[in-house]
Write a protein that binds this DNA or RNA. Structure first.
Lengths: 224, 224
DNA sequence: GTGTGTGAAATAGTTCACAGCA
DNA sequence: TGCTGTGAACTATTTCACACAC
C-alpha cells in the first residue's frame, strides 16, 4: 500500500519533511536564473537521492517534462501550495531567554512562511523589553488573548523545562494546534495537536554514539 | 533482515535516536527514588510506545526482569555506555551570533555528555568577548589549532548560511568528524563524517502543512 | 498475576530499473 | 538521447501477541 489512502490528499510524512528542502533549493535555483532543473540537480542541492526526489515530487502529482526536467517556478509554486506557504502563519514565541531572543531575531522565518507576532515571558522584569523591531515582550498571562486576537495557530516553546508542559496546556486551551518544542521534555497534548521536538543535547548524543563507533577498533567476522 | 548484521554491534538508527530520551527519563526516575521501572513507565515519559521501548532496549542486550521491569540505575549505565556518555565529548561552537551565544549559554549540555570547549567567530570585532564564564570568543583562523589541541571531534555550526560550507570544509580538514548544523543548507562532507541538521524554519513549515490540512474541509469517500 | 523478550505480521520508506515521452 | 514517472524489490521500523520467567 502507498502509505496514504486514495481518498485523502495526505503525503507520506517523510516526503512532507523534505518539501521544505526542495523549496529552499528551488528558490536558490530561481535566483541563479535557471528556468528548469532535473531531479539530479535537486538531489545535489538537498542531499536526497534523485530517485527519492522524483518519488516525492510524483506524490504531488507534479508534472516534470521527460528529457528536460522540472519548471523551477512552477514546481516552486506547487510545493508552496502543498505545504501551505501561500499564506503566512502567525506564530507566538513563548520564553524570552537566550534561545527565545535568538529565535525572535532569526531572519529566516519571514521568507519561509512564518511570522512571529508575539513574544511572551513569565518574568515580569522582562515585560516591555524590545527583542527586535516591532516585537516587545508581553505577559504570559495574555496568551489567550494574543492567540485569539492575532489568529495564532502555531507556537514555539522556548521556556525552561519545568514550565513547558504547563505552557503547552495553556497554549492548547487557547486554541494553538501546533507546537515546536525546544524544551527537553515529551509534551502530552490532545489528539489533533502536533508537536515537533528540537533537542540539541540529544542531537549531540546521537553524534557521540557514532563518534564512539568510529574510534573503537573494527570487529568483524566473528564466526565466518 | 534485522537492519544490522550479526558481525557489527550497530544499533538501528531509529533506536539510537531514542536512547537519549530514555536516558533523560531514567535520570528523572532516579531523582524520584524509583529503583525499577516498567516499559510502560518509560513509554509514558518519552512518548514512545511500550512495545517500541522493549524492542529498543532488547537491542542493547539489556536485561529487564520479567514481571518486574528494569533496574533504573543499571539501565541508565547501560544506555550511557552504549551512546558514549561514559566520557565527555569536547565540542567547538562556530558562530557567535544570537544563536551561537544562546547555545553557548545553554546549561543542558554538561549534564548530557557534551562540553563546549571553544567558541569561534570570523568577525574580528567579537574576538575576546566573553560569552559565558570560561568561554571567550576566539578567532576562526585558529580552528585547526583548537580542534587538535583540545581533542575536539564534534562541531556545532551556527554561522550565516553563506559561510557554512566553507567552515565545514575547514572543520573536516582539521579533524572534526561530526557536525551539528543549524545553517539551512545541505553540507557536502566526505564519507565518515556525520552531519545532523537542525532547521527551525523547516520545522515550522512541516507544522504549517499539517495546520493547513486541519483547517481544510474534510474530503472523504470520493467514489465509494 | 505481571511485565519482559521476541518471532511474526504489518506498515513505512527507499532504491532499482526501465518503459515511455519529449 | 535524456530525464521523468513508477511498479516492483528491498530495507527499515513499528506493532502485535504471546510464551516464558519471576
Amino acid at each position: 500500500m502507498t502509505g496514504a489512502s486514495t481518498t485523502d490528499r495526505g503525503l507520506p510524512n517523510a516526503t512532507v519533511a523534505r518539501l521544505p528542502l526542495y523549496l529552499r533549493a528551488l528558490t536558490q535555483l530561481r535566483a541563479t536564473g535557471s528556468a528548469t532543473c532535473s531531479s539530479d540537480q535537486l538531489a545535489e542541492a538537498t542531499g536526497v537521492s534523485s530517485a527519492n526526489v522524483r518519488k516525492d515530487l510524483s506524490h504531488l502529482g507534479s508534472h516534470g517534462t521527460r528529457g528536460v526536467g522540472y519548471d523551477v517556478a512552477h514546481l516552486q509554486a506547487e510545493i508552496a501550495q502543498a505545504i501551505g506557504q501561500t499564506q503566512e502563519w502567525n506564530v507566538v514565541l513563548v520564553g524570552a531567554g537566550h534561545l527565545g531572543k535568538a529565535l525572535a531575531a532569526y531572519p529566516g522565518f519571514a521568507s519561509r512562511g512564518s511570522r512571529i507576532v508575539a513574544v511572551v515571558d513569565a518574568d515580569p522584569k522582562r515585560l516591555g523589553e524590545q527583542v527586535v523591531d516591532g516585537l516587545v515582550i508581553e505577559s504570559a498571562d495574555d496568551l489567550d488573548e494574543i492567540v485569539r486576537d492575532r489568529a495564532v495557530s502555531i507556537a514555539i516553546l522556548a521556556t525552561p523545562t519545568h514550565a513547558a508542559q504547563d505552557v503547552a496546556d495553556r497554549l492548547v486551551a487557547a486554541g494553538v494546534t501546533s507546537i515546536l518544542n525546544f524544551a527537553p521534555v515529551a509534551l502530552r497534548v490532545p489528539d489533533g495537536v502536533d508537536v515537533r521536538q528540537v533537542d540539541v543535547a540529544a542531537e549531540l548524543q546521537i553524534l557521540a554514539y557514532h563518534e564512539q563507533r568510529k574510534s573503537s577498533p573494527r570487529e568483524e567476522a566473528v564466526s565466518g
